[in-house]
Simulated assay, not measured.
Amino acid sequence: MSRKLLAALCAGAATAVAIVVPLATSASAAACVAPWSAASVYTGGQTASHNGRNWSAKWWTQGETPGAAQVWADQGTCGGNTTPPGTCSAPDWVAGRAYRTGDIVRYTDGKYYIAEHDNPGYDPTISTWYWNPHTCSGTTTTTTTTSPNPSGFVVSEAQFNQMFPNRNPFYTYQGLTAALSAYPAFANTGGDTIRKQEAAAFLANTSHETGGLVHIVEQNQANYPHYCDPNQSYGCPAGQAAYYGRGPIQLSWNFNYKAAGDALGLPLLTNPWLVQQDAAVAWKTALWYWNTQNGPGTMTAHSAMVNSRGFGETIRSINGALECNGGNPAQVQSRVTKYQQFTQILGVAPGGNLYC
C-alpha cells in the first residue's frame, strides 16, 4: 500500500491531568459492575467500572473516561476484600516494577499508597494520577484485589502512554481498545508472549508511520490527487483528491478505502474523512490492514507474528522492497528499534527474525 511522509494536524502532546480520587471507606469494597466501554452510550444513573472503581454517569456520555471527565461520579473501590484487623501487609514499592490498578505498596517513607492506574513503577509521591495515599488505620484497611487490565488488551493505558509520550490527542487509548472488537484475533492469539509481541509489533509500525502517533494525515497535499485510481468501476465519489494517507498506518488510495470500508461496514469510499475524524475508525483501518492485507509481502503482519515469522516480515508486508532487501536499511532499523523498546515496556523478549 503506497504511503508518503505525513504531517501533524496537531503536534501537541496529550497532557496527563493529576486527579485525586477519594478512597473507599467501607471495610469491604462493592463488586465491580460491567466494565466501561468507550463505544457505549451511558445516560444519567447508569453505572460502569473502570480501573478498579465503580462510576455512575451524571448525564448522557460516550467516550469520556471515568476518572478523567466530570460527567462520572466516583462510587468507590470495587472488587475488594478486607485484611485482618490491625494489619497492613503490603510489599515495599520497587522502582521500575509494573503495578496494576488496586496494588498497594509501602513506600520508603513508611506510608502506604494504592495504584489508581496501571503504571511501570512510577514513584508514588510524584503522581496522584497513578498513586494515592492509602490509610492503614490499625483496625481495618480496605484493599483492592489485583485484576487484569480492564480493557482486556495486553497493553495497559499506562504502557500506551509510556510508548507515546508526545502523541496527538486524537490517537486515544480508548479509540484503540474500542477498535479491537473488529479483529478479535489480534493480540489475542497464542500465549502471553506472542500476544504481547504482536501488540508491540503493531504499535511499533504505527509509531514509525506517524512519527510517534503525532501525524494524522499526509502533509504533501500535492500528492493527494495521485491516490485516485480511475480504473476502478466505482471511481472516486468523494473527489479525486480525497484518498490521501490517513490514520495509524496511513490508509491511502480509493481501492483501499473501498476494501476497508466494506470489511468494516463503514462508508469510507464516500466519506474517507471519517478516518481522520473518529479515533476508533482510524484504529480499525490500521487493524484491517494488519490482519487482512499481505501488501507487498507474502503474508499478513498478523500471520507473521502469530506464526513466529518475526517482526521483519511485518515490515515486508507494509513496505516490501521500498525498505527490505537493502531498500532502505535506516527505515528498517528505525522500526526495529521502536519494536525493541515496546517489547521491553511490555516485559517480553522481541524474538528472532527482526530484519527483512
Rank of each mutant, 00 (worst) to 15 (best):
L176N: 00
V41K: 10
Y113G: 02
L274E: 10
G138K: 08
T172Y: 04
T298D: 10
I318F: 08
V94C: 03
P35R: 05
C88Q: 00
A95F: 01
G211Y: 00
S26H: 06
W93H: 06
T143C: 10
L203T: 00
I345P: 05
P133C: 06
H208F: 15
C236V: 15
G265T: 06
S26L: 14
S2W: 09
W288A: 00
A13D: 12
P165R: 09
S303T: 10
I318W: 12
K284W: 01
K111E: 09
N132P: 03
A321N: 13
A241D: 14
R167G: 15
T101D: 11
Q219E: 13
Q240Y: 01
G347W: 03
D278L: 05
P150A: 02
A24T: 12
T135V: 14
L251W: 11
A259G: 05
V336Q: 10
E313G: 00
A185Q: 14
F202C: 04
T108R: 08
F186T: 09
G327A: 08
N205Q: 14
F255C: 11
A69W: 08
Q277H: 02
A68E: 15
V41L: 08
N205T: 12
A13C: 13
N307K: 07
D262G: 07
I345L: 11
I345V: 15
D74Q: 01
T141R: 12
L274C: 00
Y130L: 02
A204I: 09
A48S: 06
T25D: 08
V41C: 04
S156A: 04
M299L: 10
S28M: 11
Q70D: 10
P267R: 06
A187S: 10
C236T: 15
R335S: 06
A30W: 00
T337C: 07
H50V: 12
G52V: 13
A95P: 06
Y107N: 04
S26G: 15
R316E: 03
A222Y: 08
Y244F: 14
G347R: 01
A178W: 09
A115H: 09
P35T: 07
I126W: 06
G80I: 09
G212Q: 03
